[in-house]
Nucleic acid binder design. Structure first.
Length: 421
RNA sequence: GUGGGUGUAGCUCAAUAGGCAGAGCGCUGCACUGUGGAUGCAGAUGUUGUGGGUUCAAAUCCCAUCUCCCACCCCA
């Protein structure tokens, strides 16, 4: 590899094998989304920077967005997330839509970050949201979709789990120990970081934001209390519904998940591999203010986003990723000789007209090489029209897996192959 | 944005302590001019990321730069 022009940092080339995986992932997301009645939509990849300034995190807008001026001087960004676009789409047609909306989308996003394990600058993300409903059933449905997806791609509840909590509950519980609205944000950030910092550093941080030793002790107890959810009517109902879905094994309550993003207002959840080696598989929750933030009337929503990178690594590591290789055409037609090439080409055409995918060999080379090529390309049946076959209106069909071959009359070839494929 | 590592054949990696740049896999050819996988034999692979420096001699030591990887930040 000498002077090959390099690809842009943090982007990935999708060779056919990779593209097959990407398509497969998309198909799984589509299946799950549609099985719950969600409709696919798409938003522009280019948006004005203003759209994100409204509510996205400062870091995301200031540091991680790809921003440029277009020819009219307008500040344009490659979308770093979808939710603001979704909020705008809803706000724009707010009175013409039937609620609750059930929408899903899968597409590319860009964030200017340092690439590392599970993080690229260009990635794909599945977004799924229910808008215009504020019930525990809605929360439960969204979590059920997430769990169904884990199941759909072959992950067991021993391999991946969805951690659930509720921000309203945490607000109430922290209020009991004297943490008022002004202190809430730093305290939630403190809770968000308990898994990420050493106990000493975490304690230091707690005192820095102004907690008393007594409050800290009570927060610690709170974060170890796996039964805290019983104090929340919303969560109690949500978990009961998830029981009814038969998906409880994938769900785990934890007071420690609270989400870094500020716009969440109710139930929140994140999915992780149980080995705990990787980043979050997806994250989401209930948000009430996004549509009004872009100029619409207030409407509640719940949803989550799942990137393609971490889930792919996990499936790869667990050996759950299907392997795709070779051509989609299972039938391969050889070229016996220069003179007989036209016979092969007409046969290929005849099969294609009958709906059979076929690849042929361009030009002529000895049959051994053609077989080798066919094998590598994933062909299952190799067809030969040699001199004898041409004279007798026959075709030799070799089944590569079995190593057997049969002479088939040209009139019968379509029905013969359709039975076998 | 901060910190740590890495770079040798298409791929995975060797090269003792500066001293002829190698192996496996893959690739090409032949055995096998009407048949793939297996086997055997033969062959081709390189600006050792790039630029400079030290040295009789540099993949190896020094400086710079780039790449990719990993962690932090943030988050899918």
């Amino acid at each position: 590899m000498k002077n090959t022009i390099k690809s842009v940092k943090g982007t990935r080339d999708f060779y056919p094998e990779d593209m097959a995986i990407r398509t497969w992932l998309y198909t799984q997301m589509k299946k799950v989304s549609e099985s719950f009645g969600y409709q696919e939509y798409e938003a522009p990849i280019l948006e004005t920077l203003d759209l994100y300034a409204a509510k996205s995190g400062e870091e995301l807008v200031e540091k991680q967005s790809y921003v440029f001026n277009d020819r009219s001087g307008q500040r344009i960004t490659l979308r770093p997330e979808l939710t603001p676009s979704l909020a705008r789409m809803v706000a724009t047609k707010q009175n013409q839509l039937t609620y609750p909306l059930r929408w899903w989308s899968y597409g590319p996003f860009w964030r200017y970050e340092r690439p590392q394990k599970g993080r690229t600058r260009e990635f794909f993300q599945w977004n799924i949201d229910m808008i215009g409903d504020r019930t525990p059933q809605g929360d439960a449905e969204m979590i059920a979709i997430a769990a169904t997806f884990l199941k759909q791609v072959g992950l067991t509840s021993d391999q991946a789990k969805i951690m659930v909590n509720n921000r309203t509950l945490m607000e109430e519980e922290t209020l009991k120990i004297g943490i008022t609205a002004e202190m809430r944000r730093p305290v939630f950030q403190l809770i968000d970081r308990i898994e990420k910092m050493s106990p000493e550093k975490w304690q230091e941080y707690a005192f820095e934001i102004g907690l008393s030793a007594d409050q800290l002790e009570q927060i610690k107890q709170m974060l170890d209390n796996q039964d805290l959810w019983k104090n929340s009517e919303e969560l109690t109902q949500t978990f009961a519904y998830l029981e009814a879905y038969g998906l409880s094994e994938y769900i785990q309550y934890t007071p420690r998940v609270i989400r870094g993003l500020d716009y969440y207002t109710g139930t929140v959840f994140e999915a992780y591999d149980t080995a705990g080696d990787l980043r979050a598989l997806f994250g989401g929750g209930r948000y009430d203010n996004l549509v009004s933030d872009v100029g619409g009337a207030p409407v509640s929503a719940v949803g989550f986003a799942a990137g393609d990178v971490v889930i792919s690594i996990l499936l790869q590591e667990l050996g759950l990723m299907p392997e795709f290789s070779g051509s989609p055409a299972k039938v391969f037609i050889t070229t016996f000789s220069e003179e007989l090439q036209t016979n092969s080409l007409s046969l290929a055409s005849k099969l294609r007209n009958a709906g059979i995918d076929v690849q042929t060999y361009p030009g002529y080379t000895k049959l051994g090489k053609q077989f080798k090529y066919a094998d590598k390309k994933g062909a299952e049946f190799v067809l030969i029209i040699g001199e004898e076959e041409a004279q007798n209106n026959q075709i030799t069909v070799k089944d590569l897996a079995k190593g057997e071959q049969t002479l088939v009359l040209q009139d019968k070839i379509i029905t013969y192959l359709k039975e076998k494929i």
